[in-house]
Simulated scan of single mutants.
Amino acid sequence: MNDADILVIEDDKTIQNFIRITLKTKGYRCDLADDGLTGISCFYANNPDLILLDLGLPDLDGMEVLDQIRQESDVPVIVVSARGMEQEKVGALDAGADDYITKPFNAGELLARIRVALRHRSSAPKQEPVFQLDTFKMDFEKRKVFVRGGEVHLTPIEYKMLTLLVNNSGKVLTHHFIQQEVWGYDTTDDYQSLRVFMANIRRKIEEDSTKPRFILTEVGVGYRFVES
């Protein structure tokens, strides 16, 4: 049986009840919130292990809730939404969601996504509070990145990707591995979006992104953060 605490922020009572029963049958502890403000209060009060978040809430847009959570925590957030457009999914993932499930969904899919998200969190390597190499500095406790003394502003996905590279400095990470770790799954051999994110990170942390000092490309394989 599982003992994780899961916060469900969902205003549709039918779906909320379905999720609650699904979670309880597998031993998960479950807190319910009918709107965004209640969800944020529960997040602060209960420190959940994972959050299931609907985007279409009655008071706040779910993206606002996600943004506030991400300012405070890297707790896994799975968006559960009727918004199925590709740009909605990309926007939520880029804003810091760990996964995105489109309604309607079945219990098996939901539980599988939850297991993946919790497994990634529990297997995350222990890290020193600060990583520094030459002009690059990453403060994990404050979730901040500095280059040449100035703070660099990264999107949640960019920060997650950079953290993965830094924690594995010196190792070659394949495209498949990075996508699996950052988004929780890998359903395509087209890694164009991954290359776009990586190019954005390089533009922000490299002195010359055409001659990278920190993030090196292993052609046809993936990327490697230089060993300290």
Rank of each mutant, 00 (worst) to 15 (best):
L133Q: 15
A92F: 07
S209Y: 12
L154I: 04
I157T: 09
F43K: 11
K137D: 10
L93P: 08
L66N: 04
Q87D: 14
V79E: 08
E109K: 00
P212A: 03
A45G: 06
V152H: 00
M63C: 02
F131Y: 15
I69R: 01
E64V: 15
N46D: 08
K89Y: 01
T25C: 05
Q180L: 07
K204M: 12
G220T: 07
Y191W: 11
F214I: 01
P212I: 02
L110F: 04
S73K: 07
D34H: 10
L118H: 09
D54W: 10
L66A: 05
E64D: 15
E141P: 07
P212W: 00
D35Q: 10
D12E: 12
S169T: 02
D139N: 12
L111A: 09
P125K: 07
K144T: 11
I178K: 03
G56Q: 15
I51C: 02
L162Y: 02
I114F: 00
S73Q: 09
T14A: 08
L53A: 04
K103M: 11
P76H: 11
T174K: 12
V221H: 11
K211R: 02
I178Q: 00
D12S: 10
D67P: 07
A124T: 11
A33C: 07
E207F: 09
A45S: 15
Q127P: 00
I15P: 11
L50W: 08
L32M: 08
V226L: 05
S209H: 15
I40G: 04
V65I: 08
P76K: 13
V221A: 12
L118S: 08
R113C: 04
A199G: 14
